[in-house]
């Protein structure tokens, strides 16, 4: 009996590996090998095919590179400002839409969700056409008296960043709202009834009941949004384009790390070693932020 069992275990074990093998192989070739390869490349210096081992030269170069510092700063600005704004808005919208007595609930939900069906390049191009100097947005803002002059969205560093933030927020708020909505619908509503009878006001119920119960989903949306924002590329390149596709915005105000890596590798004389070093900054940042956010949201238990 024991040997029959062992035979069966072996049979299941072989099957297990066979089912998993194609995926494991593909991931090994197209994910694991490249990530190790780019770690190796980050120690190489020189341009094109003429490279040599440079030790930590690339890392030292990061600190003396004003373009890298600017790209890092811009990327941080995008993520520090945009992620909280978007997630607060998404959570607020979700809690409004969670009310079963709300009329046109399905319609409103579909409408707000619709942006995340659009292609990143497609919507970027639409935003570009709406935010041109004498275009729709500026004439509307001036017409409504919100602004007394056209806003220089494409030519002023501050407004260029605001435009990118508006664009990403438009695209991803509905996406995050759906996660909050799904989580809210799993909450037992009787807890709310009880606290309402106890006289807890609406905002108190929101912060002391809803938010703690949504913590896992909030963690998930914060981490995925952060990773997404750190890799920002499509929007910047397609809203800020012109002049030879450098896509860095006025005074490089919209230069992100991903755009910088792309430009280092594929726009100028390729400097792959240094570009790989910059890409590892994103790797480290993503890992670090994920760990920090994970513990920050867990500690409060």
């Amino acid at each position: 009996m024991a040997s029959a069992n062992r035979g069966l275990n072996r049979y299941f074990d072989i099957n297990g590996w066979l089912f998993v093998a194609p995926a494991a192989l593909l991931i090994a070739i197209f994910m694991v090998y490249p990530i190790l390869q780019s770690l190796w490349m980050s120690f190489q210096t020189g341009r094109g095919m003429m490279t040599q081992f440079g030790g930590l030269a690339n890392i030292r170069r990061l600190f003396d590179d004003p373009m890298f510092m600017l790209a890092l700063y811009n990327t941080m600005i995008f993520f520090i400002v945009q992620v909280p704004v978007m997630l607060t808005l998404a959570l607020f919208l979700a809690s409004l839409l969670d009310n079963p007595n709300l009329k046109f609930r399905g319609l409103i939900r579909t409408a707000i969700f619709l942006p995340c069906v659009s292609s990143l390049v497609g919507y970027s191009v639409l935003f570009k056409s709406m935010f041109v100097q004498d275009g729709l947005i500026n004439s509307t803002l001036v017409g409504l008296g919100i602004s007394d002059h056209p806003i220089p969205w494409m030519t002023d560093p501050f407004w260029a960043r605001v435009l990118i933030i508006i664009a990403i927020t438009w695209r991803w708020t509905g996406y995050n709202m759906i996660f909050f909505l799904a989580a809210l619908q799993n909450i037992d509503k009787s807890i709310y009834e009880a606290s309402r009878i106890d006289g807890v006001p609406a905002w108190g119920r929101f912060f002391h009941l809803t938010v703690p119960m949504l913590k896992p989903v909030i963690l998930f949306t914060v981490v995925t949004s952060t990773i997404g924002t750190l890799q920002l590329f499509d929007e910047v390149r397609n809203i800020m384009t012109s002049d030879a596709g450098a896509a860095t915005g006025p005074s490089n105000s919209a230069l992100t790390l991903s755009v910088y890596i792309y430009n280092l590798t594929f726009k100028f004389m390729p400097n792959m070693g240094y570009a790989a070093t910059v890409s590892y900054v994103i790797v480290v940042a993503v890992a670090l932020l994920a760990v920090i956010q994970f513990y920050a949201l867990r500690e409060k238990d």
Binding site: I35, Y280, I282
Partner: peptide, 15 residues
């Protein structure tokens, strides 16, 4: 690998 940003893969993948 969910955490790996594509920017860190694209250069080796291109090669």
């Amino acid at each position: 690998t969910l955490m790996v940003p594509f920017a860190a893969l694209m250069i080796p993948l291109f090669v």
